[in-house]
Simulated scan of single mutants.
Amino acid sequence: MVHASEDEVEFKKSLATAAAAKAWHHGVYQSVDAAVGYLNIDPVQGAGEAIIIPRSDGQVDLVYFI
């Protein structure tokens, strides 16, 4: 499994604490493993709170709710 960088961890935590209401966010990741690693950063996404979409270039789009 690919682990998220410290910058990704801080960014995700800042989204969770700054938002008054939850909102959808988007990111592009090199692999499904990288996207899943990001989703598992606290706060972990629950069922229905993330979508991973494969791209033709081998990367994946990640749409997540936080």
Rank of each mutant, 00 (worst) to 15 (best):
G27P: 09
Q30N: 07
K22V: 12
A4P: 15
H26T: 09
F11H: 07
V44T: 12
L15P: 00
A16I: 11
E10D: 06
L62F: 07
G48T: 04
Y64W: 07
V32F: 09
L15H: 01
E10K: 15
L15V: 11
A50M: 00
D57N: 06
V60F: 09
A35T: 05
M1W: 13
I53E: 07
I52W: 02
R55L: 08
P54M: 08
G58E: 06
E8Y: 10
I51V: 04
G58F: 02
E49Q: 05
A16N: 06
K12I: 10
A21C: 10
S14A: 04
R55A: 11
H25Y: 13
V60C: 02
V44H: 09
V63M: 08
F11Q: 05
D7V: 11
V60K: 11
D7I: 15
T17L: 05
G27Y: 06
G58T: 07
V60P: 03
K12W: 10
A50T: 00
A19P: 01
H3A: 15
H25D: 05
Q30D: 08
V60S: 12
V44Y: 03
E6H: 15
G37W: 09
V32L: 06
A21K: 15
G58R: 03
Y29N: 02
I66G: 00
V36W: 09
D33N: 11
K22I: 10
E10P: 00
V28I: 10
P43S: 07
Q45T: 05
I41Q: 03
F65Q: 02
V28K: 01
A35E: 09
V9M: 14
V32C: 04
A19G: 07
A18Y: 13
S14W: 07
M1I: 06
V28Y: 02
L15E: 11
A16H: 12
H26P: 06
D42F: 13
I52N: 08
I51G: 00
P43T: 12
